[in-house]
Amino acid sequence: MTKHRRAVFTGEHLTAMEPILPEVCTDFGASLTEFNGEDDHGHLLVEYPPTV
């Protein structure tokens, strides 16, 4: 584990981000394939065209 990671996300935070992130990806011409996270970081699998 990285030395300076801090617990900043709760389950409530991750739940709130779940509907927002696909919208952000769409704004950038991409699509969110998968999202999950832990209390100190998040994981996003994003598909985007080579023009982005």
Results as ranks from 00 to 15, higher is better:
Met1Gly: 14
Met1Phe: 14
Lys3Leu: 15
His4Tyr: 15
Arg6Ala: 09
Arg6Pro: 02
Ala7Val: 09
Ala7Gln: 12
Ala7Glu: 10
Val8Asn: 05
Val8Tyr: 05
Val8Ile: 15
Val8Met: 07
Phe9Ala: 02
Phe9Met: 05
Phe9Ile: 03
Thr10Ser: 11
Thr10Lys: 09
Gly11Ile: 07
Glu12Pro: 01
Glu12Arg: 06
Glu12His: 09
His13Gly: 03
His13Glu: 06
His13Asp: 15
His13Ile: 04
Leu14Lys: 01
Leu14Ala: 02
Leu14Gly: 00
Thr15Ser: 10
Thr15Ala: 13
Ala16Pro: 03
Ala16Met: 07
Met17Lys: 00
Met17Leu: 14
Met17His: 00
Met17Thr: 00
Glu18Cys: 04
Glu18His: 08
Glu18Val: 03
Pro19Ile: 04
Pro19Glu: 05
Ile20Asp: 03
Leu21Trp: 01
Pro22Thr: 02
Glu23Cys: 05
Cys25Met: 14
Thr26Lys: 10
Asp27Ile: 01
Asp27Arg: 09
Asp27Trp: 03
Phe28Asn: 06
Phe28Leu: 13
Phe28His: 14
Phe28Tyr: 13
Gly29Ala: 12
Gly29Phe: 06
Gly29His: 07
Gly29Pro: 02
Ala30Leu: 05
Leu32Lys: 02
Leu32Ile: 01
Glu34Asp: 12
Glu34Tyr: 12
Phe35Arg: 00
Gly37Phe: 00
Gly37Leu: 00
Gly37Lys: 01
Asp39Lys: 14
Asp40Pro: 00
Asp40Tyr: 10
Asp40His: 07
Asp40Met: 04
Gly42Leu: 15
Gly42Ile: 14
Gly42Trp: 00
Gly42Met: 13
Leu44Asn: 02
Leu44Thr: 03
Tyr48Lys: 06
Tyr48Trp: 09
Tyr48Gly: 07
Pro49Gly: 11
Pro49Leu: 11
Pro50Gln: 08
Pro50Tyr: 10
Pro50Phe: 12
Thr51Ile: 04
Val52Gly: 06
Val52Leu: 14
Val52Ile: 08
Val52Met: 13
Val52Lys: 12
Val52Trp: 15
